[in-house]
Design a protein around this nucleic acid. Structure first.
Lengths: 122, 122
DNA sequence: TTGTTGTGAAACCAAAAGGTTTCATATACA
DNA sequence: TGTATATGAAACCTTTTGGTTTCACAACAA
């Protein structure tokens, strides 16, 4: 289906699911209980979240526990943050933010992830 | 239609439009010229972006200049940033791990592409 | 005036999204 | 064993999405 995080979080139910799973894993039924819509509908949302990596599922007996992988949101964060300066009115704040970002980047220059605000990796 | 920013940026074409308008205003035709799809299709995207306030239109003669209002993205930013710790913490752990690893074996730095082996249990 | 340009809107279409009900099946438990 | 539970999948439906072609019209330019 080639879904991405942007599409996944466009739906308010899916955002709520992510919030619900942020601090504790729940099985499919437990997630579904929190919504008006049917279990099957929630299951489909979970499937979409799984497809784009925002949720992983771990089988445990007949239950399947859903776990949020919120670090996948960095794809969205990176895109949005490149425009942060447009709503951060005080230049100081932006400067501070950039400095903070810069220090992070230099610390990790020799490895793994591309820290560019435009990167869509991992 | 009660659209929100989350839905607006779910579409890649609309994200590209926003990027295009980030630093300069363009009239409708000028925006449309940059895309494969028809002017009418682009116009509809612009309408959606206008409806949720991410773009404002200023008439000038027979032309309508589209201006990005990227500060409206703070709705998205606020939501995403509340979860930043979920990937910043991991990143920190990875950094520590790599620094430790590098001090023992410098060659290993090229092999690590995914921080998931270091996942915290939440 | 006449023709060209920039734009909005209408009618239409196929596919995707989000939902439902129903059924199948594997696991747990009395 | 037999029954309840947790889940996945299929079939189906309606609305939304993203696109098209076509037409209307105001503003500009010759």
């Amino acid at each position: 289906m080639k879904r991405d995080s942007f599409q996944a979080i466009a739906d308010p139910t899916r955002r709520e699911i992510l919030n619900m799973l942020a601090y504790k894993s729940l099985n499919v039924n437990a997630v579904a209980e929190n919504f008006e819509v049917s279990r099957t509908a929630v299951y489909k949302h979970l499937k979409i979240l799984t497809e784009c990596g925002l949720v992983v599922v771990k089988q445990q007996g007949r239950e399947r526990f859903c776990e949020a992988r919120l670090e996948k949101l960095n794809e969205v964060s990176d895109w949005v943050e490149q425009y942060r300066k447009f709503w951060t009115d005080k230049f100081d704040s932006l400067e501070k933010y950039l400095i903070e970002l810069q220090s992070k980047n230099t610390q990790s220059e020799n490895n793994i992830t591309n820290p560019s605000p435009l990167s869509h990796d991992i």
